[in-house]
Nucleic acid binder design. Structure first.
Lengths: 213, 213
DNA sequence: TAGATTGTTAATCGATTAACAATC
DNA sequence: TAGATTGTTAATCGATTAACAATC
């Protein structure tokens, strides 16, 4: 099977952004080369695993040398699809929706927020960083004129599946869901469920566990 | 080895909050019993895995009957440590810090936010939902008088490790980190790194993958 | 060249799934 | 009782780690 064409396991996918972060950091610090052994020490993984992971996508290193940091960074950028631009909308302009809209780092990475949507008349018409909050009723009309890649779901859980379905119907290729419910999507749509409360509960679990109860 | 005392794998821990959510939903819908087969269909897991997972913590079911929903919910609540109260502080009162402070659901679950902290003089002295924003310089003094369980890190990444260290020094048992850097903590402290950008990058990865590129 | 480190195969480990006796 | 479904053991699968030949 040709490199880069095989199905990548979820475990590997989860590690990719971490590699990207660590290698970017090295690059920013002016480091020009790194071995899997050095990276393994920094990241708390085995060198073996790092080499296996990279080799899912190609041969990025050189025997006796290691990896060229800049090259590796470029590979990871491309693998993650971060060499492209993505158009987003945020559905739900409450706390989370606004926090994401205000977070400028995503835009620097090529994730462009085209609009927010909400059901609340007091919010509709306002802008966040110049991004207009529109009536969620206009979602379909808007998407017909402005094709998007990613719909961010930041509604209460009761509306989450419905607005996600709508976004998919109008061409969204991915759902980034912050509502505390698992969103179901067709097989050709990507979904990431970010469950903040789940994350918090694992902390209370671990606190209890560490206390030895 | 006695039930409930063995080391629980990370994979099981990640599924626990999901079980909790689904079982709570069943309970709220008035369902009184559920079999592992029914739950498996709803959650997209195998019935075998569900039974294995539950049996890490005890024997919650009954042959020929299944699981009593209310009992199972109580077990999961206790397992996750959600039968207790937790005191939190939020360090960094920017977008994410404020969004979390405004999110009232956590409080309902027993996670009490005692204070926010920031470095910005314009924010210090303000309140969010009655929770005061204090000068981050006062973190140590505050924690000496108000012991906390969880420190939420919502600072820029350059300050994240430093404020986490400080929180741990003054008795924090867990770190909930939203800064885009991996926080290191002693072995007796729990940590959850919530990397929103990592999550977003897996979406761009998957979009590319689904397109078959 | 000699030393270093990769890419890759083989071995190990752990997690998931299947099977089924126990029992409600 | 007969049917259903658990708890648990055994089998399978996949992911991680170890080892090492290839090679820079």
């Amino acid at each position: 099977m040709a490199k880069g064409s095989g199905r990548i396991s979820e475990a590997v996918i989860r590690r990719l952004p971490r590699y990207y972060r660590y290698v970017r950091e090295l690059m920013q610090n002016g480091v020009t080369r790194v071995s899997s052994a050095e990276l393994s020490k920094r990241m708390g993984l085995t060198a073996s695993q790092i080499r296996q992971d990279f080799n899912c996508f190609g041969e990025f290193g050189q025997q006796g040398y290691g990896y060229n940091v800049e090259e590796l960074y470029e590979h990871l950028t491309r693998i993650l699809g971060l060499d492209k631009k993505y158009h987003l909308i945020i559905i739900g302009a409450g706390n989370i929706g606004q926090a994401i809209a205000n977070y400028t780092d995503f835009e620097k990475e090529g994730f462009i927020i085209d609009s927010l949507f909400d059901i609340n008349p007091r919010l509709i018409g306002l802008s966040i960083r110049g991004i207009e909050i529109r009536d969620v009723e206009q979602l379909g009309t808007f998407l017909q004129d402005h094709p998007i890649d990613i719909a961010v779901i930041a509604t209460p859980k009761s509306k989450a599946q419905e607005v996600a379905d709508n976004a998919v119907k109008y061409g969204a290729k991915a759902i980034w869901n912050f509502a505390p419910v698992d969103i179901a999507v067709p097989a050709d749509v990507a979904v990431e469920n970010v469950h903040l409360s789940d994350s918090l509960y694992t902390l209370s679990f671990k606190i209890r566990e560490l206390k030895g109860e």
